[in-house]
C-alpha cells in the first residue's frame, strides 16, 4: 500500500540511503577491527584474542569435536528448557490472564521472580540438582519462564471483548473458548515473550555452565580462556552472538509464516 502511494523518486532515494547505511556500518566495523588488531599487536601478549587470530582459529574451532559437543549440549539444554517454559508458561499465563483468582494469587510472585537475576538462584539450583545438567536445565527454565508467563497473561487479558462475545453467541464451551479464541489471540504475545525468553535462556545456560563446570559453550569459553587459547574462546563467544541473531530471524520468519494476520494488523494500526 505504501509503495503504491509513494512517488517514484522516494524508493530510489531509499535504496541509496540503505547502501549508505550499510557502507557506514562496514567502515565502522573495519575501523573497530583495525584498532583492536593494532592495540593487541602493540601492547598485548600473543595469546590474547585478536581479529587475525580469530579468523585463523575460526574454522578449525567450529569443526572440532569438542566445540560441536559443547554447542550441542548448550543448544540442547536451551531448546529443552524453552520447550518446558513455553508449555508451562503458556498454561500459567492463560490462567493468570483469564482468572481473577489466579491473577491475585500469582501476580506478585511472577513479577518478583521475573525481575530477580537468575544468577542469584543458581547456587540454590545446584544444591537441589547437584552439579548436573539438571541444574542447567532448571536455570534455563527459571530464566525464561517468567517472560513467557508475563507476556501470555497480558495477551490473555487483552483479548478483544468482541471475540469472546462471538464465541459465547455461538455457544462455545469455556474450554473451546480458551483454546480457540484466547490462545490464538495471545500467540503474538507468546512470541514476543519467547523472543525475550530465548535470550535469557541462552544466558542462563552459559552462566550455569560457568558455575557448575558443565560441558557446554560456557565451559568451553572458560576452559579455553584459562588455557590461554583466547582466539578459540572468542570464536565460541561469536557463535553465541550468532545464536541470538538466528533466534531473532527464526522468530520473524515464524511470525510471517504462521501469523500472517498479526503483522498486517500491526501495520494497519
Amino acid at each position: 500500500m505504501s509503495d503504491a502511494a509513494l512517488p517514484a523518486a522516494v524508493p530510489a532515494r531509499k535504496r541509496l540511503g540503505l547502501s549508505d547505511e550499510a557502507l557506514a556500518r562496514i567502515v565502522c566495523g573495519l575501523a573497530i577491527l583495525a584498532v583492536w588488531e593494532g592495540a593487541m599487536r602493540l601492547w598485548a601478549p600473543p595469546f590474547i584474542a585478536r581479529p587475525s587470530g580469530i579468523a585463523v582459529a575460526f574454522w578449525p574451532t567450529i569443526t572440532s569435536a569438542a566445540f560441536l559437543e559443547a554447542a550441542g549440549a548448550t543448544l540442547g539444554a536451551m531448546a529443552q528448557g524453552l520447550a518446558i517454559a513455553v508449555v508451562a508458561g503458556t498454561v500459567i499465563g492463560l490462567a493468570i490472564g483469564r482468572s481473577w483468582i489466579a491473577d491475585r494469587a500469582l501476580h506478585y510472585y511472577v513479577n518478583g521472580l521475573f525481575a530477580m537475576p537468575m544468577v542469584a538462584i543458581l547456587p540454590l539450583l545446584t544444591l537441589w540438582f547437584g552439579y548436573t545438567s539438571g541444574a542447567r536445565l532448571a536455570t534455563v527454565v527459571f530464566a525464561s519462564i517468567f517472560a513467557i508467563i508475563i507476556n501470555v497473561s497480558d495477551g490473555a487479558r487483552s483479548v478483544p471483548r468482541e471475540y469472546i462475545e462471538v464465541s459465547r453467541a455461538y455457544r462455545a464451551s469455556g474450554f473451546s473458548r480458551l483454546m480457540e479464541v484466547v490462545l490464538p489471540a495471545s500467540v503474538p504475545y507468546l512470541l514476543a515473550g519467547l523472543r525475550l525468553a530465548a535470550g535469557r535462556a541462552l544466558i542462563g545456560a552459559v552462566v550455569a555452565e560457568f558455575f557448575a563446570a558443565l560441558n557446554g559453550l560456557g565451559y568451553f569459553i572458560l576452559f579455553n580462556t584459562r588455557t590461554f587459547k583466547h582466539n578459540e574462546a572468542f570464536v565460541a563467544v561469536l557463535c553465541l552472538a550468532c545464536f541470538g541473531v538466528a533466534v531473532e530471524l527464526m522468530m520473524n520468519g515464524a511470525t510471517r509464516r504462521y501469523l500472517p494476520w498479526y503483522r498486517r494488523e500491526d501495520r494497519g494500526a
Binding site: E162, Y163, E165, V166, S167, Y170, R171, A172, S176, E180, V181, P184, A185, V187, L259, W261, Y262, E265
Partner: peptide, 23 residues
C-alpha cells in the same frame, strides 16, 4: 456483528465453519 466479529487468525472457510463446529 457491526464490526464483523471475524477471528483474524482464521481463514474465511474456518470463520464460516466456526458456528457449525460449535453447534
Amino acid at each position: 456483528f457491526q464490526h464483523f466479529g471475524l477471528f483474524p487468525w482464521k481463514t474465511v472457510t474456518a470463520n464460516v465453519a466456526y458456528g457449525l463446529r460449535m453447534a
